[in-house]
Each structure stands twice: as structure tokens, then as C-alpha cells.
């Protein structure tokens, strides 16, 4: 069991997401940075789909009710255990009554707190990911006790996990062209390929928007299935990148589709940060 003493800015329980209910209109959900999420569980030998806490910009303060191990991945959120700084990306032993305090994200935007055995809140439609209207709470917004699973994890001395370096300063987002991209004029394609786009304040688990607009005359499309990483363009030229809580269908032209890597990278960007699109060769 862990006790949330302070909930932080936007903290939610997330796992790999809900895969089987999109035909009922249920969003995928799950950790936005699936790469960091996966590493956290791997470090603790957790089941692949174990639930973790996703902590955004300012993390929560937590008391442990039993001895366990934790791992922090993703953004560097300046974690302290009983007042002493601890490392990211490695298993950390915690004792009953220890207090973990997560600070503000110094590099990146979202930190993941995995705990040995995973968080064991109720599964709804196959997932513990919190989502408005599905789970009892849409995020952690009060002092609360969260059940955790059993685990006999012990770190093996000398064992190391090969973790690829994450570069949160990387500006480039790799994309594939979307179904309506070819309808754009040359000049518009040039803007998309060469300009830098600034992340607007409208960024959350559903979608990210940018300050710059792309004037266009693209027609509306018949409502079509969309997925996280789809880059849509609204009639006023706003670019919208769908994230994991996005609705499953959309009616705006689809310009790009982000790679998984680009989607994880974008999840670590903060308001006002800049990005650039890099178009990959289409799969033949």
C-alpha cells in the first residue's frame, strides 16, 4: 500500500492502456511516454502491464506502508527519499514509513513512478488507466491509499539493464505522411517540413496544439478512425496531435502520423518548447 500525501500537479494511474474497446468509442489511454513506462516496470521485474503513477511537471509526495522497491523513469523530477536525493532509472529500496517527495520536472515533463508488484487499483475494461467517466476518479486529486501488488523482487548485484539514452532536448519528431497530406500545396508542405512549431498551452493527455497555424483549403473528411500520434489540421489551420486519451474518431484532415518514438518524445515536451517534423520515407 502507498499513501498519497500530496497529489502534485497532475498525477494519474496509468498502464499500457485499454485495447479492446475502441469499437465502443473508448480511448486507448495508458502512459503517454510508453518507453519510460516500460523501463520502470522492467527495472523491477514487474508484469509488462503493471500500473504506475504518471507524474506531470510537479510530482506527488508519498508514504510507503510496507518495505518495497521503486523505480523512477522519464522526466528528471528531482526525487528525494526522506529528504535525500535519489537516482532515476534504477531500483531503489524503500522501507515502511519512508517518504518520497517528487519535485518539479527539471528535464522532460512526465516522470513515472513504478513500484514492485505494481499499483493494484480496480481494472475497468481491462486496464487500470484512469479516465474520466470510466474509472471512479479521473486522476489522483486527494489524499488516498493505493493498493500495491506482491513482489519478491530483489535487485541482482551487478545486473544491468541496457537502457537507451533518452534525449529530451531532441527537437525532431519523426512522422509518416497521413492520408490528406498529398492534398496540400507545395508551399504548405514546405512550411510543415521546414518550420519550427511551438507547443501551445493547450497540451494535455488528449491532445497537443501549437501556436503556429497552417492556412489551408483542405476539405473536411468523413469521420474516420484516428489514433494517438495522428496530426490533424482544423479549418482555422491549428495543428492538433492526438495523444493517448484522444477520442477514437475524428473529422479533420490527417497530415501526419508520429512514430512511437516521436510520441514518447512529445509526451516529455512542455509548453513553449519547439519541435520540427521530419518526414520518413513511406513504408512500401
Amino acid at each position: 500500500m502507498i499513501e498519497i500525501l500530496q497529489h502534485g500537479l497532475y498525477t494519474s494511474i496509468q498502464d499500457m492502456g485499454r485495447f479492446d474497446y475502441q469499437s465502443f468509442g473508448v480511448p486507448l489511454s495508458g502512459a503517454l511516454d510508453q518507453h519510460a513506462y516500460r523501463i520502470g516496470n522492467q527495472l523491477l521485474n514487474n508484469p509488462e502491464r503493471a500500473a504506475v503513477l504518471e507524474c506531470t511537471l510537479k510530482g506527488p509526495k508519498i508514504r510507503f506502508h510496507k518495505n518495497s522497491y521503486i523505480a523512477l523513469t522519464g522526466a528528471d523530477i528531482q526525487p528525494q527519499l526522506n529528504g535525500k536525493p535519489i537516482k532515476n532509472q534504477t531500483p531503489i529500496e524503500v522501507k515502511e514509513n519512508d517518504v518520497l517527495e517528487l519535485g518539479t520536472a527539471k528535464i522532460g515533463c512526465r516522470a513515472y513512478l513504478a513500484i514492485a508488484g505494481g499499483i493494484k487499483t480496480e481494472k475497468v475494461l481491462g486496464s487500470r488507466s484512469q479516465f474520466k467517466g470510466l474509472t471512479r476518479e479521473e486522476r489522483i486529486s486527494k489524499k488516498i491509499l493505493l493498493p500495491t501488488g506482491d513482489s519478491n523482487f530483489k535487485p541482482v548485484k551487478g545486473a544491468r539493464l541496457q537502457i537507451p539514452n533518452l534525449d529530451f532536448n531532441q527537437k525532431t519528431l519523426e512522422v509518416y505522411v497521413g492520408p490528406e497530406y498529398h492534398l496540400l500545396k507545395k508551399a504548405q508542405k514546405k512550411i510543415l517540413e521546414e518550420s519550427t512549431f511551438t507547443l501551445s498551452e493547450l497540451n494535455n493527455r488528449m491532445a497537443y496544439q501549437f501556436n503556429e497555424k497552417l492556412p489551408h483549403q483542405l476539405p473536411q473528411i468523413w469521420t474516420a478512425p484516428v489514433l494517438p500520434g495522428t496530426v490533424q489540421c482544423t479549418p482555422d489551420g491549428s495543428l492538433i496531435i492526438l495523444m493517448r486519451d484522444a477520442q477514437v474518431t475524428g473529422g479533420y484532415p490527417r497530415l501526419f502520423q508520429l512514430t512511437d518514438g516521436a510520441l514518447h518524445q512529445l509526451a516529455q515536451k512542455k509548453t513553449h518548447e519547439k519541435i520540427q517534423f521530419k518526414i520518413l520515407t513511406s513504408i512500401e
Binding site: F19, S23, W222, A224, P225, V248
Partner: peptide
């Protein structure tokens, strides 16, 4: 793994990279 539908399209999710 699964398909999702729109008015005139089907999105087909694959188990592994094609």
C-alpha cells in the same frame, strides 16, 4: 489485433511491424 471503423475507412492494427 483489432480494427476500428469510420464512415468510409477501416484502421487495421497489426501485431508486429509490417
Amino acid at each position: 489485433t483489432r480494427c476500428t471503423m469510420g464512415y468510409q475507412s477501416l484502421l487495421v492494427h497489426l501485431l508486429v511491424d509490417m
